[in-house]
Write a protein that binds this DNA or RNA. Structure first.
Lengths: 134, 134
DNA sequence: GTAAAGTGCAACCAAATGGTTGTATTTGAT
DNA sequence: ATCAAATACAACCATTTGGTTGCACTTTAC
């Protein structure tokens, strides 16, 4: 259904870029309001060069793009990439929902004896059966 | 509805665990069929200890759990964590959709919907403005 | 009992990460 | 023309990462 045109190393870069609280915050900030690199740098208790590197990591992951405006670089979000990452995780969830037989007794409540429960009475509420985890 | 009860370092661990193609593959494999660590190790062109470390990274991120069965450890997925990560990314997407004015002409095509948000008709408490989504 | 399978863990190593400082370059303002 | 602001980038450093090998321990098989 969902076609993933992402290479493995692209996904690596995306998730690795998101694996840092400063970089996630940068993504949120530039989504709410486009900002220059130095404006971003003023927000964090680290050097300008450090923030510059974080932006570079996000740029390599295509989570943001930079646009030259005069002497400053404006950082824009690239929402398509966030979307692709979200779709990828939803695909993982789908895998789980598709195959949740014998693991279910560990993390959910299900008996293995009544295997056939494909009733067509109410198919609509099957979406969030095992979603009640905190 | 969706409250993010994840600490920053938990999110760090989740995304960092997902930032490796071997570990993502392990998550997919154990979702499709629960496997022991050594069964997993047989699938990859690396040492047993390396795979063991990958599983440990996934375990620290709570993306999988291990269950002792005799002399082997069965690796199970922890779908709740994948779900939480997916919700987090969807929250990012939502941020984007909520504030997409002047950047939109660069990267997207988004159209404007109901923009008015400040109806002061009968709010008794508006202290929970940023914790609540959807 | 002995052997092998499965695992845990420590030590080691190369490369990547996340920070620093310093220097150079481009651009805007005076 | 000069100077400051904004950025780029290199060098350096400590820590983490992703792999290895080796060894010890527990559990099953014979």
């Amino acid at each position: 259904m969902v076609v993933f045109d992402l290479q493995d190393d692209e996904v690596d870069r995306i998730f690795q870029a998101l694996a840092d609280v400063t970089r996630r915050d940068i993504v949120v900030r530039v989504t709410q309001r486009e900002q220059s690199v130095s404006a971003l740098a003023a927000s964090y208790a680290m050097s300008f060069a450090a923030v510059q590197k974080h932006v570079a990591v996000l740029e390599r992951a295509r989570l943001v793009v930079k646009e030259r405006r005069g002497r400053e670089q404006i950082v824009h979000p690239n929402p398509g990439t966030v979307r692709e990452a979200a779709r990828l995780l939803e695909h993982f969830e789908e895998l789980w929902r598709f195959r949740a037989q014998s693991i279910s007794d560990i993390l959910s409540e299900d008996r293995e004896e009544d295997r056939e429960e494909d009733r067509e009475e109410d198919r609509e509420d099957r979406e969030d059966r095992e979603g009640e985890r905190s």
